[in-house]
Design a protein around this nucleic acid. Structure first.
Lengths: 239, 239
DNA sequence: CGGCTCATTGATGCGCTTCAATTAAAGTGG
DNA sequence: CCACTTTAATTGAAGCGCATCAATGAGCCG
């Protein structure tokens, strides 16, 4: 066991509200600790796993920030999500025993490695853990449906507004500001996620700035009028 | 037990390759039979469940055809998928104990009702079933990522070509033709799924007909040049 | 047959992409 | 530490793809 494995314990992790362990007894919790065998560091720009890699584990983001991306046969790619502290990566790999997307760190990151066969065997013992795994996967499905709604029916301004509100809400629930955020991804990555070109992302940011809704300094964004963003996502009534 | 409950048994179901039971022993199979408590008929146009309904069960499509759809606060909706025989509905409901989308039958349909708490308890006994449940949810996640790629990075022709190829492939794996299909959904529903307007769907169909790729007579589609469709989805190299 | 829903097709315009140039920031080596 | 290079972001101008509006046609059913 290397030095990074010390204190790798869900029971003493300050992320337990966000991550896997929920409603477990102290005994169950310590059994879960034994599942989280290792931590793994991932350097900015490198991949936690790639499309085609053999699937073995789920990963809980301990620190840092990831994007996941799928690539079509002809090389186009699409960012399918951004994952922050406490969120789970790797569920795409279960169905075919191989990953079907890339997970790339957008800043130096650390993840908890949770071997999936261990999760499954422990799930057979603890129904609370079992149900939690099901919820995590269901949550991902529901999130994906929301992205489809965004991609299929919203216009550029609405998409970016929804994106900002979503990001800031997730950051807020992790103790950060409701109104300030630092983007960890490029305009191009935002655009890929939102189905628009980087120039459109940039222009839309500028438009929001002109309208006094946000302030932008590079990747630092300050939200000055949350309600205006909400109105953009959900147009009052008649378009 | 009403008459429809007779012979509701996975062990004698000709869909077992497509649906839930995989790699179960005869004993396990008969235990699974006991989970599938009932069948339920759903008339064309009516909902199996709606957004907000309490979640209790997963549903396996026994016959017929469904769409699922999410609705935004301001009333826009997005078709998130079309489900045919052997496919599973309802996984969206696990995370919040309530469904977050509507599942509407596009033709008279019948589903197997699988109470989720029973699935979970049986999953704790049979690891094969447990893993299969995980695979089904993972498959849905992977499918959703594919739809995001389609919505985020493809143009109208590519989207419709991908849609047709996907439909015909799923039908083929159920014993139907590789080249002929009957659309169970309207142009508007196709458009909602693909993020385009019904007029664009219609025009794109017409374009394919002009190019000799397909023949269309109302909802009956005959694919005359599968390779041309494949080339549309995956442009040769340039462009 | 008349009234419905669904589909097709045309004309016009807008939103976003594309191409291109400029600026700003971040990383690199002398 | 400051030139130099590289990457990221902004902004403008032009064009295209798809949406929108509108009218017609085709099936379906009471």
């Amino acid at each position: 066991m290397d030095i990074h494995s010390i204190k790798v314990a869900c029971s003493s992790c300050n992320l337990r509200e966000l991550c896997m362990p929920v409603g477990l007894s102290p005994d169950e919790m310590s059994r879960l600790d034994s599942v989280i065998s290792t931590r793994k560091r991932v350097k900015r720009g490198s991949a936690l796993f790639n499309n085609g890699d053999r699937f073995s584990s789920l990963y809980a983001v301990r620190s840092g920030f990831f994007k996941t991306r799928v690539t079509s046969v002809d090389g186009r790619d699409q960012v399918t999500g951004f994952q922050m502290t406490g969120e789970i990566l790797g569920m795409d790999g279960i169905v075919n025993d191989h990953h079907s997307c890339d997970a790339v760190a957008l800043e130096d990151a650390e993840v908890c490695v949770m071997p999936f066969d261990r999760i499954e065997s422990l799930s057979r013992e603890f129904s609370a853990l079992q149900h939690h795994v099901h919820k995590i996967m269901s949550r991902e499905i529901v999130r994906d449906h929301g992205v489809m709604l965004l991609l299929g029916s919203m216009r550029a301004e609405e998409r970016l507004a929804a994106f900002l509100l979503n990001l800031v809400q997730r950051l807020h629930s992790r103790g950060f500001s409701q109104s300030e955020l630092v983007l960890r991804m490029t305009r191009e990555e935002i655009g890929s996620y939102l189905g628009m070109k980087l120039e459109t992302v940039s222009r839309t940011f500028s438009k929001f700035v002109e309208e006094g809704i946000i302030e932008v300094k590079q990747r630092h964004v300050q939200i000055k009028d949350t309600e205006a963003l909400r109105r953009l996502v959900n147009p009052p009534s008649g378009s």
